[in-house]
Amino acid sequence: MYYEMEPSIWLRLILVLCIFGVVLFFFNFMIRKLLKVERKKFFSYNHINSTHKKIDWTIRILIIVCMFVGLSINVQNDFSEGYWFLETYFLLFLFIVLSEIVTAFMEWKYAENKNAYLFTIFQLLFIVAFLLLMFASDFLGLIKS
């Protein structure tokens, strides 16, 4: 299956991603205020302790290894015969979910503010819902087959 992409698709895709970013920002802001949780640093690892750091890096390394293995296996197969669970989009989705679940568990178990894990769970649910909506709707009809 080949998708033809017209030039305006990039503008629409960027618009959808910007809107998602703004909505996610306000969602996080409201949930943080509601749960009285401090803001995390942007693009930082925010490890709770050394155990969390080790588990997180183990997940990262395993996902990267799975991506290389998946690429080498799926390249040898026909496009329609590839393994969906070795595709990059699925492995990235799995990484986000696993990483955030581990973070939520560590926050629940070890964080000073016990509401931090609730914030992480709400944020994960919001992101998963968005990603599922995007894939189920072909990015809201932006990608036409």
Score class of each variant (00 low, 15 high):
N77S: 13
N77E: 15
F79E: 11
F79H: 06
E81D: 13
E81A: 14
G82L: 00
G82D: 04
Y83N: 13
W84G: 07
F85I: 10
F85G: 08
F85W: 15
L86F: 15
L86Y: 12
L86G: 07
E87F: 03
E87A: 05
T88Y: 13
T88A: 15
Y89C: 08
F90S: 09
L91N: 01
L92K: 06
L94K: 01
F95D: 03
F95S: 05
I96C: 01
V97W: 05
V97Y: 03
S99N: 12
E100R: 11
E100W: 07
V102Q: 03
V102G: 03
T103G: 11
T103E: 13
A104T: 00
A104C: 03
F105N: 02
M106T: 01
M106P: 02
M106A: 15
E107V: 02
E107P: 08
E107W: 09
W108K: 13
W108H: 11
K109A: 10
K109T: 00
K109L: 12
A111C: 08
E112Q: 13
E112M: 08
N113G: 09
N113D: 10
K114M: 11
K114V: 07
N115W: 01
N115V: 02
N115E: 07
A116C: 06
A116T: 07
A116G: 04
Y117T: 00
Y117L: 05
L118R: 14
L118G: 13
F119R: 05
T120N: 14
T120W: 14
I121A: 15
I121F: 13
I121T: 11
I121R: 07
F122A: 07
F122P: 04
F122C: 15
L124R: 00
L125I: 04
F126T: 00
F126L: 03
I127Q: 06
I127V: 15
V128I: 15
L131F: 09
L132E: 12
L132T: 06
L133R: 01
L133M: 09
M134S: 10
M134F: 10
F135K: 13
